[in-house]
Design a protein around this nucleic acid. Structure first.
Lengths: 154, 154
DNA sequence: TATTGTTATACTCTATAACTATA
DNA sequence: TATAGTTATAGAGTATAACAATA
């Protein structure tokens, strides 16, 4: 085994621990923070997916964007609709479908969450030198793409 | 607003999207992958926490390491114990407590999951130049520490 | 016949509060 | 009295399978 292979192996072991804990800590802390807004993580991710895919998308499109099966989306959207954060509207050309839209109250909620979160991120990014920031973002892009494309499970 | 401040703001917005999606994609893909081992994410994180904190730790120590309340840990450890992946053993000096240990079957399961995962991570890391790898790991360390210390919610 | 979305079902996770046993 | 852990309870998420309505 060459020195390079040993280095790689050590980096792999380290990255395994890091990614696992980062993911879990993020997940748990996000969950806690969202409680102040009376939102769960899956509900929040559904709102973000709707924002990303665009107003008026169907339940199926929402399911794919949020990485959920349709039966799960039904339940989550039910609860968001009860609070008038989103709304199911009739689809103009396919009567089996709905057009899901983000309601003003939903947009306001996301904006409030955004504002708080960005302050936290800025606090972290300011501890990183500018060129490090750029490299960090590039690496994160690469990482996300690799995950989405190859089903990379880290 | 200076150019630097604008740059920071753009980086913040980008990092917000990236971290959120990375966290969610990781969470969902891990969940899917663990199904092959008949494990849920909280169960897997509990096994990892036990490995990290060390054999014979108490339920309370496990709860803190896994970022869960004790009632939740009770349920998760119940299910792991049924499958003989872990075991509650009497505490030598405090009869209210248990010493939780990882059973051979549990260690074997974690080893099998490790092996598969490391191949995936290695495939990703080989696309990153060696000095980029080191910087990536350093940044991830900093990020994790910032999260743990300040309750940074990203 | 195929597709969109919901319903039914079963299980797990999660937090809070009440409780038991022990320190 | 304080602490370790469990139990009871209620609600949310998740996946599978069966189903209704529509294409």
């Amino acid at each position: 085994m060459t020195q390079q292979e040993m280095d790689l192996e050590a980096d792999v072991a380290e990255m395994e621990q890091l990614t696992l804990r980062m993911g879990w800590v993020t997940h748990r802390q996000q969950t806690q923070r969202l409680k102040a807004y009376n939102l769960t993580m899956p509900q929040f991710m559904m709102l973000r997916a709707l924002q990303r895919v665009g107003q008026g998308c169907t339940m199926s499109e929402l399911a794919e964007a949020a990485m959920q099966v349709s039966a799960t989306v039904t339940g989550i959207v039910d609860r968001l609709e009860e609070r008038e954060l989103v709304s199911r509207q009739p689809h103009p050309t396919d009567r089996r479908s709905y057009q899901v839209v983000l309601m003003p109250q939903g947009e306001a909620l996301l904006a409030a969450i955004d504002q708080e979160k960005r302050a936290h991120i800025a606090a972290f990014l300011q501890t990183v030198p500018p060129d490090g920031r750029e490299q960090l973002l590039n690496l994160m892009h690469g990482y996300l793409e690799a995950m989405m494309q190859e089903g990379l499970y880290v």
